[in-house]
């Protein structure tokens, strides 16, 4: 997992899976790094092979965090497996998805 700041955006990348096992760790790390001056969060899905419902919940919490700071949350380049879950749970309508 990699988290870097590109003002005013926090960019999360290099996650291979986002599940109940890893969700708490990700949320804690983002809260720690989402400092003053930041408002947007980009979640780069490249390399993300699997996400479950707990992972979806984490994405929703990150979106809430960005909105609270007047920013926006984006999913970048989700793969087929991730898109399947998003579409199954209708969350593709909720997140801003950027394919490229």
């Amino acid at each position: 997992m990699n988290i870097e700041t590109q003002h005013p955006t926090l960019v999360i990348s290099a996650l291979t899976e986002l599940t109940a096992l890893t969700a708490s760790e990700l949320k804690a790390a983002v809260r720690l790094r989402f400092t003053a001056g930041l408002k947007d969060i980009d979640f780069n899905c490249a390399g993300l092979g699997f996400i479950d419902s707990s992972g979806l919940g984490t994405l929703i919490s990150l979106q809430k965090l960005a909105i609270e700071h007047g920013g926006k949350f984006r999913l970048l380049a989700p793969g087929p497996q991730v898109l399947q879950v998003l579409e199954l749970t209708r969350m593709h309508r909720v997140f801003e998805i950027v394919q490229s």
């Binding site: 419902s53 707990s54 929703i60 879950v85 749970t89």
Partner: peptide
């Protein structure tokens, strides 16, 4: 949509 849980059984 903004609920962070409750999708497991649906899936």
């Amino acid at each position: 949509d903004d609920s962070e849980s409750g999708r497991g059984l649906f899936i």
